[in-house]
Amino acid sequence: MTKYFPLLLSLLLLACSKAASREIVSGQTPRSIILRDSNSEVTYKNIVGDKEGFDRKLITINDSPALRASARYKFYYTLTPKENEILIDCAYFDVRNIYNGTRVSTAICGLNTQLTENYDEIAQDYSNTWRESFFSFDTKEIFETGIGKDFFLGKIGEIEIFDRYPSANSLENSAPQKIIKSRSGCFNFADAVGFLVFINKDNPTLHYLDVLRSEDPLRLQRMQEQDLKKIAVKKCT
């Protein structure tokens, strides 16, 4: 067995090298992107560029390839190369709820959906559904009184997550503050955008809070229940 170990190690290193060399880049054909490695290229047409009012671009999220589709609202899609195809792992949406003026910043991960030119419909479908469900709370009182209010969004383990609209102006500008509450206290993310991240496209369950830390380049900080517990220790106000 010992004499075969160097050969096995070489094969493993070669396999890792090939996997690492796979990349997603802009294509020479207009509106296309390319999945390529040292041996082959696969072209995906009609992925970037204008489409029905959306400006679609190849970007990075946390230094990994992603797509952004933006118009009045913003949609992001993380990409995963797998063998000779590109899969969409997560779809993020940052939109305004037309029903009550609230901001809907959420994501669905674990999609494992093959990339097609109609990928932008994924986030739109989910955002439309969630705008009508747990983001459909009544905000009329804030407009009438001008007094702020917290709205419960969901739980990650023992952590409760709220959107706080401190005033009518914050609601008019669709600018909530993410508030988390634990048994030990609270934490206010202030102006930072927090995406509620759901897993399992067939039966979505809330697992993470992804906090936007930078827009150019785009960087998200993924926070799990234990991460949130560590900071939710301040006095609740």
Rank of each mutant, 00 (worst) to 15 (best):
N128T: 14
N128Q: 14
T129D: 13
E132P: 11
E132G: 14
S133Y: 09
S136E: 13
F137S: 08
D138W: 01
T139G: 08
T139Q: 09
K140H: 12
K140C: 07
E141D: 15
E141H: 13
I142E: 00
I147K: 13
G148W: 06
G148A: 00
G148P: 03
K149Y: 08
K149M: 12
K149C: 11
D150P: 04
D150E: 07
F151N: 10
F152D: 06
L153S: 03
L153H: 00
G154A: 05
G154S: 04
G154I: 04
K155C: 08
K155H: 07
I156A: 02
I156G: 02
I156T: 01
G157N: 05
G157Y: 02
E158Y: 04
E158K: 08
E160T: 09
E160Q: 15
E160N: 14
E160G: 12
I161M: 07
D163R: 00
D163V: 01
P166W: 01
S167W: 06
S167E: 08
A168E: 12
A168N: 12
A168D: 11
N169Q: 13
S170I: 08
S170R: 06
S170A: 15
L171W: 01
E172V: 14
E172P: 00
S174W: 02
A175T: 10
P176N: 08
P176Q: 05
K178C: 13
I180N: 02
K181H: 08
K181R: 14
S182F: 00
S184Y: 10
C186Y: 03
A190W: 14
A190C: 15
A192F: 13
A192L: 15
V193L: 15
G194D: 04
F195C: 00
L196D: 00
V197S: 05
V197Y: 07
V197E: 07
F198V: 04
I199S: 11
I199E: 11
K201Y: 04
K201L: 00
N203M: 12
P204N: 03
T205Q: 10
T205P: 07
L206E: 09
L206F: 01
L206C: 09
H207G: 09
H207P: 06
L209H: 03
L209S: 05
L209W: 01
D210I: 03
D210V: 04
V211S: 12
L212K: 06
R213D: 13
R213M: 15
S214W: 03
E215P: 04
D216P: 00
P217N: 10
L218A: 12
R219L: 12
R219A: 12
R219H: 12
R219W: 07
L220N: 01
Q221L: 12
Q224I: 12
Q224V: 13
Q224N: 15
E225K: 05
Q226S: 15
D227F: 06
D227Y: 01
L228G: 05
L228D: 06
K229W: 03
K229C: 09
I231A: 10
I231Y: 06
A232M: 08
A232I: 03
A232L: 08
V233Q: 05
